[in-house]
Simulated assay, not measured.
Amino acid sequence: MRVVIAVGGNAMTAPDGSARPQDQQAAIEVAVEPIAELICAGHQVVLTHGNGPQVGNLLVKNELAASVVPPVPLDWCGAQTQATIGLLILNALGRALAARGSAVPVAAVVSRTEVAADDGAFSAPSKPIGRYLSEAEAAVMIGHGQHWQDRGERGWRRVVASPEPLRCLDVPAVLALLAAGFAVVCSGGGGIPVVADGTPGGYRGVEAVIDKDLTAALLAGALAAERLVIATDVKHVVLGWGTDSASELSGIGVSDLESLVTGGTFASGSMEPKVIAACRFVRRSGQPAAITSLDAIAGALAGVAGTIVHPDPFSRT
């Protein structure tokens, strides 16, 4: 099958959240093992990934150097982290495939995601990113045109737009690589956010972050993927998380899952975007999607592990 796998940025850091270069390299070497197994089983794999911790590191460097050099904009941060994480995945996945006797080549594509210049998120930035600063430190960044909010005792925090992804612009390159037999890494961090600049074929980067799971659903649809797998740190979506009545969700129809989202069942900053992304893919493609842990993705493709979101009709299990 052609499969799009979305891996969270936190899967590329140490268990305690450390994001030193050696921590990221070690984590990625572990993360690619089940992906290599899928490729060796004959699946055509496109891998996308988060980049929150990695962009966070760049933001700290921006803040520390802001009085000396201008901060690097978020679209540049996205491009830099796509390339860095892509390099680590290329090296690690290449070794993992070779160890299994596979000659499948791997490529990384620095990828753009188009958003609308008039998306309402730009007029009311609300997505918090980065660390907390003092009022004086935040004032320096505000002087560079950034939006910061006073969050009380914890200090000031930057907020940015998180617009809706409209189109993965570099899908033709991904399709060409797939046709040539490559496994492909692309659209990391939701893609580099760009808007049309009014010139033929022209785009410009914007200060925004795009939800990587929503972009993964868009990418999977554009590639005519037969499965979308959203890899997270739990094997199942859990209903009643943190309560005595918590229960794992094995299978559910897309309409039932959409009703749970509407009812506020899932946390907006964690599981909800994954669930919405899975629903969007199922609606657009008529194919199942899965939400599970990395070590269970093979079982998820076989329909025996994780939470599988099915086209309607389907009874919840």
Rank of each mutant, 00 (worst) to 15 (best):
219 L>S: 01
89 I>A: 14
66 A>M: 03
91 N>K: 15
243 T>I: 11
305 A>T: 11
82 Q>K: 13
52 G>A: 03
134 S>W: 04
34 P>C: 05
31 A>E: 10
139 A>V: 10
215 T>E: 04
16 D>P: 09
11 A>C: 07
312 D>Q: 13
142 I>D: 02
228 L>H: 02
67 S>E: 13
113 T>F: 04
299 G>W: 00
202 G>I: 14
77 C>S: 02
212 K>S: 01
232 T>W: 02
38 L>F: 10
122 F>Y: 05
204 R>D: 02
61 K>D: 11
171 V>Y: 00
307 T>V: 14
297 I>A: 03
102 S>D: 08
107 A>L: 08
180 A>G: 03
234 V>R: 09
141 M>N: 01
126 S>Q: 15
101 G>W: 13
216 A>Y: 09
183 A>K: 01
118 D>Q: 13
77 C>P: 03
30 V>S: 01
93 L>P: 13
307 T>E: 13
293 S>L: 13
37 E>S: 14
233 D>I: 11
220 A>N: 06
86 G>E: 01
221 G>H: 11
176 A>F: 05
31 A>N: 06
96 A>Y: 13
289 A>I: 07
76 W>A: 10
46 V>S: 00
98 A>K: 14
31 A>F: 06
92 A>T: 01
260 L>E: 00
42 G>N: 09
141 M>I: 08
36 A>T: 10
68 V>I: 03
135 E>T: 01
302 A>Q: 15
104 V>Y: 06
27 A>C: 12
230 I>H: 07
285 S>P: 06
130 G>L: 07
285 S>E: 00
205 G>A: 10
152 G>L: 05
305 A>W: 03
311 P>S: 14
191 G>Q: 14
204 R>C: 05
26 A>L: 12
302 A>N: 11
10 N>H: 04
6 A>P: 11
163 P>F: 09
218 L>D: 00
212 K>T: 06
91 N>G: 08
138 A>S: 10
166 L>E: 05
18 S>H: 14
294 L>H: 01
315 S>W: 06
181 G>D: 12
77 C>I: 05
58 L>A: 14
243 T>G: 07
314 F>K: 06
147 H>T: 15
74 L>S: 11
176 A>G: 14
298 A>I: 05
189 G>N: 02
53 P>Y: 14
77 C>L: 06
248 E>K: 15
291 I>P: 09
103 A>R: 12
6 A>F: 10
247 S>K: 13
54 Q>K: 12
234 V>I: 15
228 L>P: 04
259 S>I: 06
117 A>M: 09
67 S>R: 15
198 G>Y: 13
63 E>V: 02
195 V>K: 01
110 V>A: 10
267 A>F: 07
255 S>E: 12
98 A>R: 15
40 C>E: 10
